[in-house]
Design a protein around this nucleic acid. Structure first.
Lengths: 161, 161
DNA sequence: TCGCAAACTATAACATGTTATATAACGGGG
DNA sequence: CCCCGTTATATAACATGTTATAGTTTGCGA
């Protein structure tokens, strides 16, 4: 069965990038499920942003993640329900709501940084190893690579080094 | 403001690909809006699949697009409401529902193939021109390129050649 | 040939992005 | 000093992907 998105080349590049991204996130999610962490893979960028940049107001968090403010507001309230982040207003400006990691969020991030993220990163790096040449060829290689061995199968290989 | 996804490199590649894909689709949507076509950019792959492969049952359509069957079912019913595709059961197997372009869908695709898709393709090709090197570098170049001149600004340049 | 597992599609529930808009707080100019 | 535009966030409505599951047909095998 012909892969139409691939055949269309540049024309539907956006759809194709989204499709590959979803595949990667789904694979990552399976990894996380095995490791018994209670957060969707798509929430990690937000946690990583707070880890790297410290407490931030909603708007700046949105900017640093490259998504819109309503998206951040929703993720924050989700993570807040899970007890991983908290929202305070201590600042002088009552409009701004500072988002920060809770103790529990801090622990999760520290654990992830030590045990989980390196594995994921090495699995993805393994997938992308030796890629070169035009973008579309690299994308095709990633798709083929994921089809041949999903990320979870690349983790052990990656950490064995 | 640091771009966290970019800093994280391979770790959040999935999120980053999705973000770039969404950006491309949004830019494409703006192009389509100018040209007064009544369909979201994300529906074009389905129409293109029917154009390339002819009438297909829902399941094969899903396979050729690399998305799940419920996603196709919903898009088909949306496009069917717009009168662009139709669903028939003529086949021997009563479980299968063949999806095909209507006359109106055929016209839209023909028009798009002649007037719209070449412009989009050349704009994206322009964006990706001269890309080379490691994947992450190419992605960064695409993001920078889109920030500097969104797709709609690249159309005239592209068609002028 | 009857029954039941497999195959195909539809539906429900959810995830997470978007745009548009409402609400509340800030702060400058008359 | 108050009004009003600007800024920050929340909410609503929608788009479109997913997984899980229900409901029909089909067709094989006892």
């Amino acid at each position: 069965m012909e892969d139409v998105l691939r055949s269309l080349g540049f024309l539907c590049l956006g759809s194709r990038l989204k499709r590959i991204g979803e595949q990667l996130q789904a694979d990552t999610q399976r990894l996380l499920d095995c490791l018994d962490v209670p957060v969707q893979s798509s929430q990690y960028p937000l946690l990583a942003a707070l880890d790297r940049l410290g407490p931030l107001p909603v708007g700046e968090l949105a900017q640093s993640l490259g998504i819109t403010q309503p998206g951040v507001t929703r993720s924050v309230s989700l993570l807040s329900d899970l007890g991983l982040v908290e929202v305070t207003q201590s600042d002088g400006d009552q409009r701004r709501r500072m988002v920060s990691l809770t103790k529990s969020g801090r622990s999760l991030v520290d654990l992830a940084k030590r045990d989980v993220w390196p594995r994921i990163e090495s699995a993805v790096a393994d997938l992308c190893r030796d890629l070169s040449g035009p973008l579309l060829a690299q994308l095709a290689a990633i798709e083929d690579g994921l089809a041949a061995a999903p990320l979870d199968r690349r983790v052990e290989k990656g950490t064995a080094q």
